[in-house]
Every structure is written in C-alpha cells, then in structure tokens.
Write a protein that binds this DNA or RNA. Structure first.
Lengths: 208, 208, 208, 208
DNA sequence: GATGAATGAGATTTCATTCAT
DNA sequence: AATGAATGAAATCTCATTCAT
C-alpha cells in the first residue's frame, strides 16, 4: 500500500549539476587512487562519488581521461605554487617551491605515477622553474652546474620517496629534501656525470 | 648479471630441464616486468619463456611467488654487492655500494616496486650497510648526522628515478646520485628535519 | 513449478531486464545442474541463459551464490508445501508433504546435493514438519517412536533415490516412498536402533 | 665434498613391486575420495600413496580406471557378503546382507556415487540377491510384492543416507535401515505404485 | 542527463594426462 | 619400471566500457 519511496541510500538523490558531479568524481578518484593505487576500479570510484557509472563515463570518456584530469589539476596547482615561490626574496624561491610542491604531492599522492607524464601547461611551469633556478644561482644558494633537468630528477626522486612512505611516514620526504638541498648547494667538488638533456626529459614524459 | 646460485633452503635438486626452465621463466619475467610493469600477464611470461603455463605454475605456485623469487634474487645480489663494497679502502665503500647497487637495479628494474618489500636476508644486508656508513663517517666522507634510514630513503629515491627514466635515459640515476652524494658530504649547515626511525622503515617494508 | 516471489530481504527493485535475466539464469542453472551435476560450468550456464558471463556474475557474485539461490528457492517452496500439507485432515498431512516435496525435488534435482545444507528459514520448516508428525501420530498413521530426525533421514533417502534415477526412471522414488511409508506405520516390533539426535542433524547440515 | 646422498623424504625409496604399488594407490584413493569426494586430485593420491604420478598412470590409465578399480573391489566384497548371507537360516539372509553391505559401504564411502554404476560380476550378485529375497518371502519375513528392483532402490537410498551422514553420524544408516526393514515386512495395505523394471535399473547403471 | 545492467576479453589458477629423464 | 616435469584446456572471476531504460 505504501508508495514506492526512495530506497536506502537513495535519499540524497539530489539533481546535481554536471560541475558538482565532476568534483565528486575527481575527489573520489583521488581518494581511491591514493589508497588502492591506479588499479582502483571505476565502478568503485563511481560508488564512492555517489553517482552511477554511466555518469562517470559521461564526464570522462575513459579511465585514462579521469586520471589525466587529476594530473591536470595537480599540474595547475603546482604551476601556481611555482609562481608564488617566485615572490620569495634572496634566491630562496626554488627551495620554497620544492617544499611546497612536495607537500602538495604528499597530500595528493593518488596519481603520482603519471604526474609528470602529461602535456599542456607544462612548458609554462618549466619556464617558471628555470627562473627560480637562475635566481637561486644568482644568490649562490645552489651550484652553478645545477641544471633544470637536475631539478626534474630531484622531483621524480621525491615522488618516489613519497609513494613509498606515504602511508607510514608521511613526512619522510622532508628529511630527504634536506639531503637533496644540501647536495644542491655550492661546493668545491663538481658533479662527475653530465646532466640529462631536456630532450631526454621530454621523451620520458611523452613515453606515456 | 648472472643469477646467484642456490641460497638458503633452496637446495632442492631440480632436474636439469626443470632448472633450465626456472631460469627461462625468471628471465622472461624480468624482461616483461621491466617493459610492461608488474601487470605483465603470466601467460605472456610463459610464452616468452617458451614453456607451458602449467610449467610456470609448477615452479611458482602463484604470480606473487614468481615476483618474490625475482626479488629474492635481487636482494641476494645486493647483499653480495654490499659485502664486496666493504673491501673498498678509505671509507669509500658506501659510495661504491650505492653506485653498484643502483647499477644492478637499473639493469633489473622489473620488480623494483617491491624490491624492498620482502624479508629474509634483509637484516644481514642492513647490518653490512650500517658498517659501510660507519666506515664512511670514520673517513669523513659523509656527515655524522647521516643515519642508515637516510640511506634507505636515498635508495628509494634512486629507485624512483630509475623507474621513471629507465627506458629513455638509463643513466640518469648517475647524475642524481652525484647530487645525493654531495648532499651526504660533511657540511656546516645541518639537516633541519629528524631522520625517520628504523621502526618506520620496517613498517613501510612490511606494508606489502 | 513457478519460482516463488521475492522473499525476506530480497525485495531490492530489480530492473525488468535484470529480473528477467535472473530468472533465465536460475532456470538455465537448474537445467544444467540437473543434467550435468554441480560441475556444470558457469560459462555454459550463461550461454544457455543467453546472457554474458558478466551478467551472471553481476547477479550472483560466485558460483556458490548461484547454487545458494537455487537452494533458497527450493527451500521456500518446500516450506510452502509443508504449510499446505498442514491443512490435510485425518493426520494425512505428513504423507502428503513427503509426496509433494519429493515431487518438487524430482523436478528440481539440480542442486539436491546441497539442498539441505543451508540455513535461513529451515527452522520454520522444521517446526511445521514436527507439527505434521505429531498430527500423524495423533491419528495413528505413524509409529509413536518415529522422530523428526527419522523424517530427515527419510528425506535424505528419497533424495538419494531421486539423484540416482532421475534421468531414467523419474518416478522411481514413488515406489520407494511406498516402502518408507509402510515402514513408518504403527507396528508391533519396534525399531532396534536409537534415532539420531537433532544436534547431529544440525551438524550434518552445517558440515557444508 | 659429501656424496650426494638421499635427499629428505627419499629415504624410503624402496624398490616396490607392482602389486604393492597397486594396493598403496587404491588405499590412498579410497582415503582421499572418502575425505574429499571424487574431486580429489590424482596428484594428491599419488603423493599419499608415496609413488610418482607416472606410476599411478602406469597402473591405471585414467582416473576413471582407478575409480572403477575401487568400485570393482567393493562389488567383489559385496558379492562375497551376499554369498555369506545366503547361509543365514530362517529367511534372515536378506536382512543380514543389507546390514553387512551397508556396513561395508559406510566404511568405504569413497566412490559410492558410482558404486552401482559399473558392470562385471554384477549379474552374479543380482542372482544371489534374488535368491535371498525368495528365501525371505518363503519365511514370510518380507512382503510377496517386494521385488529385487525394490531392493536396488533400497540400497541406493541407504547409499544416499550414508553419503550425507558419514562424517557426523556414521551409524545413522542403521536407524534408517530399521525403517526400511519395517517397510519390507508383510502387511495388509499393499504398495500403491508399480516397482521399476529391471530394464530401468540396468539403464540407470549403464548411464555412467 | 543519469542510471546501472550487460558485455566479453582477459587474468589467474587447477588438474588430468603425456613424455623425457 | 619409475619418476615427476611439462602440458594446455578449462574453470572461476574481474573490470573497463557500452547501451537500454
């Protein structure tokens, strides 16, 4: 006799608009990728987001597209962090940026494996970072021989540390950054190997 | 480069053909894991090894067992490298070890994600590394404040670089190691964060 | 013959196509289990049902779940048969129930091996059967020494006959029930062994 | 330097002869079929028997052949039991046989599912049983209308009870046999269904 | 537009049987 | 003759993606 009302779990069936769903999906994906790696299933993501799987596929035509969107979000943030860091005086912007961007990655470690593997806007970030590097050299906070590709390796290495330690020792990367910064400082004995080329970095990033 | 011989508890007589197939399988697995990540399918591994899938499962009752075998091989080798490094004079053993072990990992990058995540023999390796560290401090080649857990982070950091660059710039890690070694050297300004504890490292490793 | 409607806890709204497929799958499973035993493959079941294997697994997350659903259907029906039998006058309800429930089992012999091996609702059925037994004793249609556990053995015994003969002589169990009913009737010489306990029956059923 | 002596577990590598192996295998098979059903793997059987799987396949060209051998053993024994029972006076041979053969089956329940499904020697057993039945009728221990096919059904039904209860209540079949024997006794109200034909029984048995 | 049911290729694993040692 | 390594078909189950409702 009772009207077939909303079933358990359906009581929040608000007519959400597209933008909201997008955010819900990205949040859910970030959370699940962080806890289960990129193997987290799209179905689980949709469920956690509270939307149907069809809705997910309307927003993101592919699992990879969803990941790419997360990566893009992260890159956008990192770009902003780089620009903020440029305001630091005394050549300290670079250090500031490394700390802040690492902090951000530690908090959003879900799709780190692919974080550097995508394109648009990356070039602008790179130019900002190069500027930070030049400024740091100008103030003798880092070696002259340090290149922007060295910074890329440094960020990849921090990513590796974060990925490994995030669950247990989420601040481990700070100690490691201490070591890296010490290694970047001006010193008498120069590095013994050539830096990798920007072309190589680009190829790595393009290599999916 | 060659697989280490039978180790503790492994001395069961394998028939010649069985032993051969075991090698073929481990080689194929290493190759495929390196090129396709741990998602490489066991069927593909068996095909590349030129044996039936059943043969693979007779030797390694589980995909994880196969991975574990590769990891064990790698750890055995790294243990040997650590002991060899101990023979280096002038406190240079530690640097020597970091270079050699990184070299090995770059050549066997297939199961790096799990390389540190397994048990037996690890303790012996750690003690050897601690000895290398003490020797390096004795000869003032590294800071006194450097801990063995810092070395662990350093190795994870190198692993991250190798994983990212292996296909395109297989020697990138050497340049990165330059930076790390520079950061390890004695210097005036001390690190600003506490090292992580050995207990934290152990938990990370135990954490799958 | 028709599947019983939604039961306790099963009232989730299934979309029409989903509900249809559920029926198709249960029918196919019943048919194949009947003809090939429980070893019939889920792939074959899906094919006979005319749906993809994924659909089967969406509805029944496990082969066992599929079997359990069939068993549940059967138990529900048998429960109803017991209640219907209670309306028979003259203490004949028990005989009526044995005939009807055996008939049903002969028509749904697919998952007989596990038919009694599951829980919910079983207790209610048992109480109904006990009532049937008491009524039969009251009207002197069966011996006073007959217990409800004897009835359980009797049903297992019929099940054994049905399983063996279903393909060739699908009515053989009727003749066997004649013998059993004759054995249940009041008589001078009592049984010579103790009945098994209800606890033993419960353990047998729990024992997978 | 040590001679490669016998390895662990090989110290009982006695040169066993064929007959002995056959027994070992049949014993192991009976034990494993009893505990794990006919799904017990041939590899496990060989291991429990303490022989190689190749040896098993030399003795029994097929898993089915192994099962058939067990069945044959059982039938031989049951044939002997029937003949022994024929010596019982007063028409009690039939009851004696049912008890003894059930006892034997309860103790050798491994391949019961197929126990009646095989051929050679069966005919001789049947003739012996028919004789027991006639003798029982002669002494008015069973109804005249009881046929040998009824006895077949009775034995199948006992098999069903044994299969179900063997682990928990290994004597349950005795109580059930009480009921069956009571049902076989002469009585006023005749059975209401026709017995199945010998041809039907034969077809059931042939039907794998 | 949103939903979630349906799909089916593909993954891991088992096991009866064959065959080199 | 005995062994057990090798085989590969087949089983169960997962999941990214499509499509009817």
């Amino acid at each position: 006799m009772s009207r077939p009302g909303p079933v358990l779990g359906e009581e929040q069936h608000l007519r959400r608009d597209a933008a909201e769903n997008r955010e819900l999906l990205l949040d859910a994906a970030a959370r699940l990728f962080a806890s289960h790696g990129l193997d987290a299933s799209v179905e689980e993501i949709a469920r956690v987001a509270g939307v149907g799987i069809g809705t997910l596929y309307r927003r993101f035509p592919t699992k990879d597209a969803l990941i790419a969107a997360l990566v893009q979000d992260a890159l956008d943030t990192i770009g902003k962090l780089a620009q903020e860091a440029a305001e630091q005086p005394g050549g300290k912007g670079l250090e500031h940026f490394l700390e802040r961007s690492s902090e951000y990655q530690a908090d959003h470690s879900g799709c780190l494996p692919r974080l550097w593997n995508t394109d648009p806007g990356r070039d602008r970030i790179r130019r900002t970072i190069v500027a930070l590097l030049e400024d740091a050299k100008l103030h003798s906070r880092v070696r002259d021989e340090l290149t922007s590709t060295d910074l890329t390796l440094i960020m990849w290495s921090i990513r590796g540390v974060i990925e490994t330690t995030r669950c247990i020792a989420p601040d481990a990367w700070r100690r490691h950054l201490d070591v890296l910064l010490a290694g970047m400082r001006p010193a008498d004995d120069p590095f013994t190997h050539r830096p990798i080329t920007q072309a190589e970095v680009d190829k790595v990033i393009a290599h999916e």
